[in-house]
């Protein structure tokens, strides 16, 4: 099965010479459909850099990043932007929902930016909101939603349409522990339905929802945890 995301000796260095900062050093990582991979590591270990490279929001200094088999280094800025909108969903701690748009309009926005006609985009957005059990809130504005509801809107936006790769950076940041777990359960369900996801977190309890937990230290992957016990009996 083709990997949804592949990092091959991905390296990201900021600056040169003695003051260079090595954010990532030769990271190899393969994430397949139906797989949730969590990334843990201390502050400054390269977790967010890894996510930026995986999502095409930053370019590697050397090595290669492939999304759905496409090497990102071979894409021009327009091609990269198109791949990002079409294939990659992002959930960040800062939700970045647009306050002037309703929940449904927020979810439909990336589709419309990618040229999907308004009515079709709206239908897909409503379906995505229904999947996160927020269909009744479709016409409400972000400030009329609770923190947990806003996070579910952000997840619906990340997964709307046919996005196969979900990248989440501390997606449960501001939520209480029960709501946070519900977000993880939702992520897990989308992955079980065939998506691939990378979850950056410092919460071991959240990382435990992943099929694999990889550990970064000083820009290198140093270890991996994988339970022998499956999700179903």
């Amino acid at each position: 099965m083709t990997a949804v995301l592949e990092l091959r000796a991905a390296t990201r260095t900021h600056g040169t010479g003695p003051t260079a900062v090595h954010a990532l050093r030769g990271v190899d990582l393969v994430v397949r459909p139906g797989e949730l991979v969590a990334v843990m590591g201390p502050s400054g270990s390269g977790k967010s850099s890894l996510l930026m490279l995986a999502g095409g929001l930053d370019a590697s200094t050397s090595g290669e990043v492939l999304v759905e088999g496409v090497p990102l280094s071979g894409l021009d800025p327009a091609g990269l932007a198109s791949l990002r909108r079409r294939a990659v969903g992002y959930v960040f701690q800062e939700l970045n929902l647009l306050p002037a748009l309703t929940a449904a309009e927020n979810v439909a926005l990336p589709l419309e930016l990618d040229g999907v006609p308004g009515r079709a985009a709206r239908e897909l957005a409503l379906r995505a909101l229904d999947e996160v059990e927020l269909a009744p809130a479709a016409r409400r504005f972000p400030d009329e939603l609770s923190g947990g509801e806003q996070q579910r809107v952000a997840i619906a936006r990340a997964l709307v349409g046919d996005r196969r790769l979900l990248l989440a950076d501390e997606p449960t940041g501001a939520l209480d522990s029960v709501t946070g777990e519900a977000v993880l359960e939702l992520l897990r369900a989308r992955v079980d339905a065939g998506a691939a996801a990378v979850l950056v977190t410092h919460e071991a309890r959240h990382a435990a929802w992943a099929d694999r937990v990889v550990f970064l230290r000083d820009g290198r992957l140093v270890d991996e945890a994988r339970s022998a016990v499956g999700w179903t009996a």
Partner: peptide, 25 residues
């Protein structure tokens, strides 16, 4: 010491995965 810490962290996270899966079932 960092190696000792990391080895244990991996083992404990693996146990956490196992508990989480049993609970999910």
């Amino acid at each position: 010491v960092r190696d000792v810490l990391q080895r244990q962290r991996t083992a404990t996270v693996r146990a956490l995965q196992t508990h989480t899966r049993r609970r999910a079932r």
